[in-house]
Amino acid sequence: MRILYFAWLREKIGQGEEVFTPPASVTTPRQLIACLRQRGGGYAAAFANEALIRCAIGQEFQPLDAPLGAAGEIAFFPPVTGG
């Protein structure tokens, strides 16, 4: 799947986009976060506080416990601040 990062998540992780195939046991964004956090470094810093993380699956806002399904694109970002 394609994983996108925005705002301070992108800065802490050091890239805005990557392609990653998570283990089959990963079925929700929250589980994917736990998996990515294990990489340590910028990932551990970016995902340190799950309360500040929002996500979109297939460009639709979803809760962190939503099913990933066959999502081709998932994005992680802080709460939005436009306007």
């Binding site: 925005f6 705002a7 979109a56 970002f77 802080p78 709460p79 939005v80 601040t81 436009g82």
Partner: peptide, 27 residues
């Protein structure tokens, strides 16, 4: 529309100050 845009469109703002420091605006 402006009320909804602020909470449901994926935009993020960072503030950049004169001394060169910057930080992301919190919701």
């Amino acid at each position: 529309l402006i009320d909804q845009l602020k909470t449901s469109a994926p935009f993020w703002k960072a503030e950049e100050f004169a001394d060169g420091t910057a930080h992301w605006v919190e919701a």
